[in-house]
């Protein structure tokens, strides 16, 4: 299970990078970025997983005293939550840029966006 998650995550990362590097449409590039980001998150969680352990949520099934021995490492889980938020923010900023760029040039082709480099 862990390996599948890790492999899947790695695949997502590669797809994402591939998308960012090859697609001409800005939106697709941003999607590529999202995939890359998501892949990272999957890898993150996958690496934090411990066999036969449960989610680090302390409730009635999981007493506080037993938590240390029965839950997976909570740190990656915490990290991934933050990372998701941040990834969202970055995606949002990227989209904001994409919108503004589209408004100013009426195109989403990334190869058109290279003004100012001819000097």
């Amino acid at each position: 299970m862990t390996h599948i998650a890790l492999a899947g995550g790695a695949l997502l990362i590669l797809i994402g990078v591939w998308g960012m590097l090859t697609k001409k449409n800005i939106i697709r590039i941003i999607i590529g970025f999202s995939l890359f980001d998501t892949g990272l998150h999957v890898v993150l969680v996958g690496l934090g997983h411990l066999k036969n352990r449960t989610a680090p949520i302390i409730d009635s099934d999981l007493p506080r005293e037993a938590a240390a021995s029965r839950v997976v490492d909570p740190v990656p889980q915490a990290i991934v939550l933050t990372a998701i938020v941040i990834g969202l923010a970055v995606t949002a900023v990227l989209l904001a840029f994409a919108l503004k760029l589209y408004q100013s040039r009426k195109t989403l082709d990334i190869s058109e966006l290279r003004e100012g480099n001819n000097d």
């Binding site: 840029f97 760029l101 100013s104 290279r114 100012g116």
Partner: peptide, 11 residues
């Protein structure tokens, strides 16, 4: 436009 492209690339 220049700032926008620059910002986008940066992001």
């Amino acid at each position: 436009f220049k700032s926008l492209t620059a910002g986008f690339k940066y992001m």
